[in-house]
């Protein structure tokens, strides 16, 4: 089986909100505020990188952060919500 390559679900839009200074996921009738590094992580979900690739890239960008443990869990949660496919 080929590895999961996370991408945003079709109806979900990732955008930066300049007014509030935060990243957002925008869906019908709903806005999810992405706090802290969450926006960086979701921005890497382009359907080309697999989870490993996302973790490696974040690890290089934020040395010392617990990305290997936390990022896959976070991505799984977003998939359970239906925001990633």
């Amino acid at each position: 089986m080929s590895p999961w390559r996370p991408a945003l679900a079709r109806s979900v839009l990732l955008r930066h909100d300049r007014v509030r200074g935060t990243d957002l996921l925008v869906l019908p009738e709903r806005v999810v505020v992405l706090r802290g590094p969450a926006g960086h992580i979701v921005r890497l979900c382009d359907g080309r990188r697999d989870v490993r690739g996302i973790v490696d890239e974040l690890g290089a960008r934020f040395p010392g952060a617990p990305v290997a443990d936390e990022v896959p869990v976070f991505l799984g949660k977003l998939r359970d919500e239906g925001w990633l496919r």
């Binding site: 909100d17 007014v19 509030r20 957002l24 925008v26 009738e29 806005v31």
Partner: peptide, 12 residues
């Protein structure tokens, strides 16, 4: 209206 709404912070 839409341009101003975007500036103001309207998302939806």
């Amino acid at each position: 209206v839409m341009a101003q709404a975007g500036e103001l912070g309207v998302i939806h």
